[in-house]
């Protein structure tokens, strides 16, 4: 009943910076506490990352700074190419396809039609000097909307849903608070009713009370939208509040994955134990 098929299967994602040498993989990773190869200096930003994302599911990725979380997200959003690995997309009534193999045109179409992303820094996701409504309109145009009246109506509706005062839709995000900017980004990300929503550190850098409101907003939206969501955060509190399952990353590797409550109550890997004991006490 709750969508028993994966929407997305990531398989062995790998991204390396630098030429690389034959020993890179053997000499980096969580066991060595580093992602840089001591022989050639290449950085293995992420390696062997595999997971399934189900319809309606919120999957968390938690890990310290530099562990490779954002790299995974950027590859899935085609902001960055994977060196290895597959991204199998399952669309109802069609054979699953590895979309990494698609042309850049096809990828752009897929992204415009099916994906939404919210970046940690609003300036990555928004044009700060054009109006909030304009930012959303731009997104809708890319997804194929044409009627100006409908676009404006939809933008207003989205801003209302993300609790941005609609009377401010003609102001540029530059004049908004951090929390509001994030809400505009969320409105924009949701505008095309994506099948896949990617959230990168959405609440990092916001005041605690603002953070709570944004998280709460995401939860409420999640309840009504049934979109498959990937939440990346270094903050276990965020992961706990939003995700039902999660992956723990360190030095470019997934060291542990499981039900979020299990990861929090019964962490297995030494790194996860450290993370949990320092975060939640």
């Amino acid at each position: 009943m709750s969508g028993k098929t994966p929407v997305l299967q990531a398989r062995n994602l790998m991204r390396r910076y630098g030429e690389g040498c034959p020993t890179c993989l053997a000499k980096t990773g969580a066991a060595y506490g580093r992602n840089m190869c001591p022989d050639c200096g290449a950085v293995l930003a992420c390696r062997d990352v595999s997971f399934d994302l189900y319809n309606r599911e919120v999957l968390g990725i938690v890990g310290e700074s530099g562990s490779g979380k954002s790299t995974v997200l950027k590859m899935l959003h085609f902001d960055m190419e994977a060196d290895e690995g597959e991204m199998m997309l399952h669309v109802e009534g069609q054979e699953p396809e590895n979309v990494f193999a698609w042309s850049s045109f096809q990828k752009r179409m897929l992204r415009n039609a099916q994906m939404g992303i919210v970046y940690q820094h609003p300036h990555l996701g928004l044009r700060m000097k054009i109006s909030a409504g304009g930012n959303i309109a731009e997104r809708l145009l890319m997804a194929g909307w044409r009627n100006v009246g409908q676009i404006r109506e939809r933008a207003a509706e989205l801003l209302e849903r993300t609790e941005v005062p609609v009377e401010r839709m003609d102001e540029p995000p530059a004049s908004f608070s951090g929390g509001m900017q994030q809400r505009v980004q969320i409105a924009k990300a949701l505008s095309n009713e994506p099948a896949l929503l990617l959230l990168d550190e959405v609440t990092t850098g916001l005041d605690v009370s603002v953070q709570a409101r944004v998280l709460d907003l995401i939860r409420r939206l999640q309840e009504n939208l049934h979109v498959a969501t990937l939440v990346v955060s270094h903050d276990l509190g965020v992961i706990r509040m939003l995700s039902t399952r999660c992956l723990v990353m360190k030095n470019g590797e997934v060291v542990e994955s499981g039900l979020t409550d299990q990861i929090l109550e019964d962490p297995q890997h030494p790194y996860t134990q450290l993370l949990v004991s320092s975060a939640l006490r």
């Binding site: 009943m1 709750s2 028993k4 189900y54 709570a212 409101r213 998280l215 709460d216 939860r219 509040m241 039902t244 399952r245 499981g258 039900l259």
Partner: peptide, 26 residues
């Protein structure tokens, strides 16, 4: 499998503890 566990939690299993994990603002 984790997804099957989630299905059981949703459809067949209930669990009461002393501690409540609440969702802010709900």
């Amino acid at each position: 499998d984790e997804h099957d566990v989630l299905t059981l939690r949703e459809e067949e299993m209930g669990y009461v503890t002393q501690f409540l994990r609440v969702i802010p603002r709900l």
